[in-house]
Nucleic acid binder design. Sequence first.
DNA 1: GCCGCTTGTTGGCGAAGTGTCAAGAGGCGC
DNA 2: GCGCCTCTTGACACTTCGCCAACAAGCGGC
Lengths: 208, 208
Amino acid sequence: MTAGSAPKWRRLEPDERREQIFVCAAELFGERPYAAVSTADIAARAGVARGLINHYFGTKRELYLAVVRRTLTLPPSAVTTLPDGSLTERTDAAVDWFLDMVSKQQKTWLAAITPEGIGRDEEVEHILDEADREAAGLVLEAMGFDRGDERWEQLIAIVRTYAGMVKAASREWLDRETLNRRQVHTVLSHVLRTLVADVIPRARTQSE
Amino acid sequence: MTAGSAPKWRRLEPDERREQIFVCAAELFGERPYAAVSTADIAARAGVARGLINHYFGTKRELYLAVVRRTLTLPPSAVTTLPDGSLTERTDAAVDWFLDMVSKQQKTWLAAITPEGIGRDEEVEHILDEADREAAGLVLEAMGFDRGDERWEQLIAIVRTYAGMVKAASREWLDRETLNRRQVHTVLSHVLRTLVADVIPRARTQSE
DNA sequence: GCCGCTTGTTGGCGAAGTGTCAAGAGGCGC
DNA sequence: GCGCCTCTTGACACTTCGCCAACAAGCGGC
């Protein structure tokens, strides 16, 4: 027995502690819906007093929003290298890149895109909006469009529409397993090609 | 002053009271996220004691699920009459019919398809699943497919993928107002046509 | 018209969850 | 070894939820 007085708890740098709590919260919010996760649960998993959560994040809801924000904001590993080449080559590459990314973070991704039953949450929606807009911009650039385009907002809207399909397709593939990767690839790249080649040119003429 | 002893409250038929509470709950759950609606709020709006909610629905959550179930289960006004004719005519008609329906129940529809930030809710997902499957079946039949098809499940999956796009497009149109009805129509019918004509035949050959 | 019974409805209690805050203790610096 | 800064705890006040025994609305019998 080393007579030492083992400290009851260890003192951490604020950033460190904050991150630790954040990670535990992210796990739990990924497993159960918001209302089914208590701050006591989070504190317990982090091995920390419940009050500390409020100290670092203010409110359970604020903590939740922080988790949502980080989870949905896609890592900037994004743009990287999409090849030049024919339209088909580029759409194929884009879809492939995306499916790779999704299959890596499978669990997180699925938890993040799962639709809720009913009841709108303004703040969450806003975060999702921004994330989608960002992703849509990257896709458009990869397809050879220019951010300066006069109808940029409209292009974004169309791609965001497509994003809805991408999310649904991901669920069919990873969650329900009703489609395999190749089938999902076929559907998504076909549709993306149709959008770029046929729909976008046509939509431009229908602004009013 | 009629000396009468005005009763403090009126006694209703169970079905009647149940419905009244249900309607108030549906309104509130449509306005705010689940956790931001208290049973006291619902009881207040219904002009009823809070305990009565538990008497009729057991739990706040059960009441919520009941609301979700009814809201997401589309009215059977669905099938009705989709014309024969060329593929283009049929896809156009299907998309038109759908956009009409959506624009009528705008508010409810938007509240129902709004995505949540993170955190999966098994039961809600299951309800959504069933609703989507039902809708997908109708679309497929309208497109001339047969429920007896050997790959019916796979077809359902593809159309459910498309449903994700439909929902996203509805938000762009009704909520963000970044696309007008004609543009949404163009996008959706184009894609639906592509799916039926090109993708589905191809996907069948990629089952493994 | 009064009374009694059925049952829809209320109101309060106990448990659980959340935010606040003053007091306590880890551990670096002198 | 001592003191101090501040990270961390634990308890308190308040809100919300599910439960249940008691209450009373109002129909039917006499």
